[in-house]
């Protein structure tokens, strides 16, 4: 198995949304694993376990080109489905404005879901360079909210 094969496997990993692939061939074993697996897949008894079988002729170069663009570092994504608010109450000033310097853990806004206000904290320290979502706009899971550099 050469580096090209491993590259292919790594691609397959992200294309299929998997977190780990392990292959054993002629005494060599290769395991590719994504750090911070986004998903904890519960394996239930009685359920068939899935394996990528060699008879599935996946042509990797033919795979869908419309992959979501790589998100630049520092983009804060919405972890919830709900309504994004830039300030704690309609009358109060926004938590942050473009150009503000924020600390790690500082509140950037809230996503209100089912009457619960979920505070969005800054994952890093830096400067707010862009706010992508208007006050009161609907956001889904993974919607880009704010960019911090």
């Amino acid at each position: 198995m050469d580096i090209k094969e491993i590259k292919k496997l790594a691609h397959l990993l992200s294309e299929m949304g998997l977190t780990e692939i392990e292959i054993e061939d002629a005494g060599k074993r290769i395991r590719i694993r994504k750090e911070h697996p986004p998903v904890v897949q519960e394996i239930r008894s009685g359920q068939p376990t899935y394996s990528l079988q060699q008879e599935v002729p996946l042509k990797l170069e033919e795979m869908r080109p419309e992959r979501p663009p790589e998100r630049p570092k520092g983009i804060v994504l919405s972890p919830f489905v709900g309504t994004f608010y830039r300030s704690p109450t309609p009358m109060s000033p926004p938590y942050v404005e473009v150009g503000n310097i924020v600390e790690k853990g500082q509140i950037l806004g809230v996503v209100a879901a089912m009457k619960l206000m979920n505070e969005i904290e800054s994952p890093v320290a830096g400067t707010v360079v862009d706010i992508y979502v208007a006050d009161g706009a609907a956001v889904g899971y993974g919607t880009e909210l704010i960019r911090i550099e």
Binding site: P38, V39, Q41, F80, V81, T83, A113, M114, G140, Y141
Partner: peptide, 26 residues
Amino acid sequence: SVCVGPADSALSYLNVARIISAAEIT
């Protein structure tokens, strides 16, 4: 359309809070 979560259905298609929120915001 509204993205409600990652691939794991417990966090998306089975997540009642996120689905109700999606109905509310739309």
